[in-house]
Write a protein that binds this DNA or RNA. Structure first.
Lengths: 400, 400
DNA sequence: TTTGTTAGTCTAGTGGATAAACAAAGTTTT
DNA sequence: AAAACTTTGTTTATCCACTAGACTAACAAA
């Protein structure tokens, strides 16, 4: 909420803000008593009592038995009710569909994956419906039911949620949001896969406390999700983070974007595979040249492949250096498919960063590979829906 | 103001927000009547009346004569009182000191420049005192007097205002803020010169309405100021925007930062001069190889020099492309000393951007050279002080 | 049992927003 | 010119949410 917005300030806003403050406190510090919430937030005891009563009515929190006394009356402990509703998050990949059902804490209740190859838009839509229907049917009974659907896509999504371009899916101007909202009558969020991953990492990853997190989604291409000042930065039209097409070699090879020497020509899965194709690797057939097989070759100690990974790690480091100099982030997280090869990427990447990054940028800076790896994006869109749902819950009820 | 901050919400916050809303409305739409403020902000007429009366008491606005009637009682017009106080903004360069005195609208009342060469910290401090004393003494009488001092410096400033490193000045860990605050008993803001320039352009430049503005300060080195979502992004420790050290050529020449192929090795004033030194140019002596002389050679039609500028413009475009792909900004503004050579830089820069930037990024994107050029940074720090002053004015008075 | 402490609710009071009535100062219509 | 209408700005009554502090409840220690 920004003071410069043309929004007036009144007691509703105050209540909304404080309610949100109390809920956040309970979520992050549960179990906690009303008294502790009051003293820790600075709110008056009475105010907290009243807001807590609202939250209880909404089933967003619940009271557990009494806690331990600290020399007086025993406190009633409050807990966030993660099971007040469930959220669907789907990672729509080029050749897979990964769907999860999470509770409001982001805990995964169910996970389903479908692998496919070269499907048309209509066919993917069909699979998507099946996935959502399945996950909906699995969801346990709860006060709020399914609270929203989120979909992460490998493409450019504008600020309205329209998919403008998804080159690897061969999609253009697809309004999936409208389709899903019409069919399911639920809030739908469509988000770029890298943005979703960044959000997922912020909420459920190692970087929970950081305000400035850069999520590098290194897969077929490279996309970057930016969490700046604690919230997702999407740019003027929602096209930020196209760092895969950042020039790191002015006179480098031509990219399909029209540019030369783009980062993703050096450090993506596609780049790795292209370089591997030039080698004479002990694979059963040319068709089986994929990341999984390269990883197993590396595991067998194939020096050629290991060197390939190391070189890629070095190039990843070059781009990450640029990111560090640009954003001075607290944390850089490398996710998506390439993150699974962290064993062979890590050393050369760190060496490159240590060599280049300005000294003062190195303080308090963490560079991690994602722990969730393939799940970040799905978790992220699920988190979007949850945030959205909770913020709507904070708003005053308008009587019908 | 962020809902996640651990700040409670109460009546004061509401009043502060609405007062700020009303003041902003009057500032941007003056002259304007109370009634118009009410209808345009959505606030109640009575609320506006009361807030306006507060603002009149603070001398932040004033009433002019009655306006034209639109079929009823004639309105009393309200105007922002730019002369309620004055702000001092100083651009501390490597070999110059540029100080301005502005009113609260950012209009320059007085401008003074001192040129010097290789002074020690103590000597510069002395000059700085002289400058501030002079500007203070010139300021017209006003209700609030001098409301603050801002200084833009060519170096790394952390979030406390400490100057950690200013390589070209040979400064390290200088706490200028404390020195000035102790001497003048006024709020002091120290800011990186690129950040200051970005702020200056946002407030007084062509990009008044844009929310996402990138200011490229191309001088001896290159620094970048980032206005994202309407406010300055400073990174976790205040070190963001070090884009001069972004790699644009992995196997390029070594930079003093330890990196190879940094942008500022290709597109800064220093790079231009270095390349010019290799040429056999018709200059009276080697000592006179500077930007001003190169510009006059170009004006005389020297093809070698013009090509040098064009090449530099091309390289500027490479970095700006990376900026566009990263931030999807509404506007990119090139400022500082190199901006004065825009005539010869512009074409090759635009050609490079047109060739490379992803098509969807080109919509609604403006690339401009700064209109204020050398004044942006001083205007920016002055604006910082003004903003700060006004936000303090919005806070409820605590009776002593 | 008494005393002290902590938890949570209740009541009165406060500040600021809103709606609506009202006063002031015009314009337009008759 | 008088009457009717419009618009501006103030005033009044009311409402809402927070605060302070009294009060009740429930426990521990002496």
């Amino acid at each position: 909420m920004n003071m410069k917005e043309n929004r007036t300030w009144n007691h509703h806003v105050v209540k909304e803000g404080n309610k949100s403050l109390v809920l956040e406190k309970i979520k992050n510090n549960s179990p906690i008593s009303r008294a502790a919430v009051a003293s820790q937030t600075g709110l008056n005891k009475g105010t907290v009592s009243s807001l807590v009563s609202d939250l209880l009515d909404d089933h967003l929190i619940y009271e557990s038995g009494p806690g331990v006394s600290s020399g007086g009356r025993r406190p009633v402990m409050l807990l966030f009710n993660g099971s007040a509703g469930y959220s669907i998050g789907i990672d729509l990949g080029v050749n897979y569909l990964l769907g999860i059902l999470t509770d409001l804490n982001g805990n995964i209740v169910e996970k389903k994956e479908i692998i496919f190859k070269k499907l048309s838009y209509e066919e993917i839509e069909e699979k998507l419906f099946e996935m959502i229907d399945l996950l909906s049917s699995i969801a346990p009974a709860s006060p709020h039911g399914i609270i929203g659907i989120g979909v992460g896509v490998p493409g450019i999504v504008d600020t309205n949620g329209d998919i403008l371009l998804a080159p690897n899916l061969n999609w253009k101007n697809v309004n999936l949001k409208m389709v899903l909202e019409a069919r399911y009558k639920l809030p739908v969020i469509i988000e770029n896969e890298a943005n979703a991953g960044a959000y997922g990492e912020k909420h459920f990853g190692a970087g929970k406390e950081s305000d400035n997190i850069i999520y590098v989604s290194a897969g077929i291409g490279i996309g970057v999700g930016l969490i700046l000042n604690g919230s997702l930065y999407k740019g003027s039209n929602g096209f930020s983070g196209e760092l895969g097409h950042m020039t790191i070699q002015v006179d480098g090879p031509l990219c399909r974007c029209g540019n030369q020497g783009c980062w993703e020509l050096y450090a993506s899965e596609q780049a790795l595979l292209a370089k591997a194709a030039e080698l004479d690797l002990p694979l059963p057939s040319k068709e089986e040249l994929d990341l999984a097989n390269l990883i197993s070759l590396a595991e067998q100690g194939d020096q050629q492949v290991i060197e390939l990974f190391e070189q890629t790690g070095d190039y990843l480091g070059v781009g990450i250096n640029n990111i560090i100099n640009t954003f001075n982030p607290r944390q850089v997280i490398i996710g998506n498919r390439m993150a699974s090869s962290n064993r062979w990427l890590e050393d050369s990447l760190n060496k490159r960063v240590a060599k280049q990054a300005l000294w003062f940028q190195q303080n308090d800076l963490q560079i991690n590979f994602s722990e969730h790896s393939t799940l970040s994006a799905a978790l992220g869109v699920s988190a979007f829906s949850i945030e959205n749902f909770l913020s709507v819950c904070m708003q005053p009820k308008t009587l019908v």
